[in-house]
Design a protein around this nucleic acid. Structure first.
Length: 574
RNA sequence: GCCCUCGUAGCUCAGUCGGAUAGAGCAACGGACUUCUAAUCCGCAGGUCGCAGGUUCGAUUCCUGCCGAGGGCGCCA
């Protein structure tokens, strides 16, 4: 906690004769520990325990904050907070609009680029990861006060559209729209692809159609718009089902950057970065080599005069910096894109398009694997899993489970709860492990009510709501009560509540939603332990009951808010 | 061939800005239900932190090499 750091830092500075980090860390032997004495001892050439003693002397009377301090082991300072201090901090947190989470000291505009499905192509689990991780980061960044601009960089331009449009014409526009309308994007795409590969005549038409599209032929554009709008209708369906924030307002497809591509080339030429290589116009970037150890370029303009994704990604960067005024940029994109994004950033920096201090971050993530540790396939075998089918299955499975556990619930409530639990489970299983690693998709585990899962966290929240419901007590009415901490479980829960701030900030600093997940799991664990040991409504007296109700309310608010930052809803009953 | 990421308990995962005895959950075993929702809790057991060196008072954490898994390496996006 910040205030402990603030009170120890001067003592360390006094002993060190200059600024010195107390190195305050959580501890399993006390409420916290300060490890700064070990490093300082080396600098001063003294015994670490002696330095720790001097620091404690210099700190003077800290009894308003710390109940006890102890020098342990080689020179750690163990810190035990006073109950009065914890209670006071708790009271501050519960009256704070962000439940004790500090606002950003440097709010600015952040662009988050995420989801990015392709038009006329099925969304798959890779898009699930990008959508879910990106959305959680968006929510957390907004929560601490940043201005967040969501951008969904859909693949709505390029050579595949020649074949897609020709296939649309072959099918008849109405038939095609129907097929796409029911969400069979894969069938449409594959049929087009097959014709492209099997028929030279079709291939020729497709190529001619690309030229017409790029040339702005009105009829071709109309057909293209049909493809895009039918696809985005499907994407929106998935987004609503997934409960992410993305809407049509966030669409910023590749086609949107079309007019900016020629200027990108011109600006690179003016900056004297553009070179001709094998008929293409390229920029060479230091530090990147190809298989033969020759310098590897970023291709800006292909030999045939066309642009490619590097060009539009550079246009993106310019647009986000110059039009949107972003000061940092997050790309929530799979790990295979790492090198490409590094090269784009390197070129943008070399060209001087990124202001001093501008941050461009690749929020990389691993693959979703099946229980066989291979890329996830559907039940029926072979095929890639379709996202909407997967989400439907999640809700179905949750509904079975809710019906079994709570048979008295009405059908309408059951469906509503199953939706929150099923979708929450899928999202949470994606968010709760370190995003850079692959993770194994396992229905049983993610829908289990035990362990680090969404249902376990949601259940803890629902139990609290149930207490207030049963007692007929308004949650807000209890918020001025300052809890009295007697039992170990009460104290542990209170301390956990105070760590919400650092959990949220850890998530933001590392762009790692799993940090917040781990915290919420710990909060739920501490709460259920408290729940088992400390009767609330049956407490010995009214003061104890109110104190415990206040702890319950604070826990529920943080659970609900924390889950919401992850894009997950917390039902009031389950 | 070069570059990037990952390797922690039987399984799934945390932890690592260098700190004390490496933590959870599942599974296994032993307990606790006339419940504030047992969808839970309490206990027990389980590990040469891939291997080998190096730096350090101290390394799972930093560095180097190796092994294993995945990914990337010029005109698809």
């Amino acid at each position: 906690m910040g205030s402990v750091y603030a009170s120890l830092a001067p003592a360390f500075a006094a002993v060190a004769g200059g600024a010195c980090d107390p190195v305050v860390r959580p501890s399993d032997r006390a409420d916290g520990q300060a490890n700064g004495a070990l490093a300082l001892a080396k600098k001063l050439g003294l015994q670490p325990r002696e330095v720790a003693r001097q620091v404690l002397d210099a700190a003077g009377d800290v009894s308003d904050m710390l109940a006890s301090t102890e020098i342990a082991g080689p020179g750690f300072i163990n810190l035990v907070f006073s109950n009065a201090f914890i209670a006071e901090q708790l009271s501050q947190a519960t009256h704070n609009p962000r439940l004790g989470v500090r606002a950003s000291s440097d709010p600015h505009t952040v662009v988050v680029d995420y989801s990015a499905p392709n038009v006329a192509k099925e969304m798959h689990v890779g898009h699930l990861r990008s959508s879910v991780i990106g959305d959680a980061l968006v929510r957390a960044l907004m929560f601490v006060g940043h201005t967040v601009v969501r951008e969904n960089h859909i693949g709505d331009w390029g050579t595949p559209f020649g074949m897609l449009i020709e296939h649309l014409i072959d099918m008849g526009e109405d038939n095609a729209a129907d097929e796409l309308g029911v969400g069979d994007l894969d069938g449409f795409y594959k049929a087009a692809r097959r014709k492209f590969e099997e028929s030279d005549e079709f291939k020729g038409r497709a190529r001619a159609r690309v030229v017409m599209l790029q040339g702005g032929d009105e009829d071709t554009l109309r057909l293209w718009r049909t493809l895009v709008s039918e696809s985005t209708r499907y994407f929106n369906k998935v987004y609503r089902q997934l409960d992410v924030l993305l809407t049509d307002d966030d669409l910023m497809g590749e086609s949107a950057y079309n007019p900016m591509l020629a200027p990108v080339v011109e600006r690179l030429r003016e900056a004297k970065l553009l070179e001709e290589s094998d008929g293409a116009e390229v920029v060479f970037v230091d530090g990147f080599t190809n298989r033969d150890n020759d310098p590897l370029p970023l291709i800006i303009r292909k030999g045939d005069g066309g642009y490619n994704y590097a060009t539009s990604d550079l246009a993106c960067v310019i647009d986000r910096v110059e039009r949107i005024g972003a000061r940092s940029l997050l790309y929530v994109v799979g790990a295979p894109q790492a090198q490409h994004l590094q090269m784009v950033e390197a070129v943008a920096r070399k060209a001087g398009w990124l202001p001093e201090g501008f941050i461009m971050n690749h929020v990389s993530f691993g693959s979703v694997l099946g229980s066989d540790r291979k890329m996830l396939k559907s039940r029926s075998g072979g095929e890639t899993v379709k996202l909407n089918a997967l989400l439907d299955e999640a809700v179905e499975r949750a509904e079975v489970s809710v019906a079994e556990k709570n048979p008295d619930m009405s059908a309408a409530d059951r469906t509503a709860v199953a939706t929150m639990v099923g979708i929450g489970a899928v999202k949470y299983s994606d968010l709760s492990s370190d995003r850079v690693k692959d993770y194994i998709f396992d229905w049983e585990r993610m829908l289990s009510f035990e362990g680090n899962t969404a249902p376990y966290l949601q259940y803890a929240h629902a139990r609290i709501c149930s207490i207030f419901r049963r007692a007929g007590i308004d949650r807000a009415s209890i918020r001025d009560v300052v809890p009295t901490l007697v039992e170990a479980q009460e104290r542990d829960l209170a301390l956990r509540i105070l760590r919400f701030d650092s959990a949220v900030w850890e998530m933001i600093d590392t762009l790692g939603p799993h940090k917040l997940c781990t915290y919420l799991f710990d909060l739920a664990t501490d709460f259920t332990s408290f729940y088992e040991h400390c009767p609330v409504l049956k407490a010995d007296n009214d003061a104890m009951r109110d104190s415990r109700l206040a702890l319950c309310d604070a826990t529920a608010r943080i659970m609900s808010e924390g889950l919401l930052l992850l894009g997950i809803r917390a039902p009031e009953q389950m």
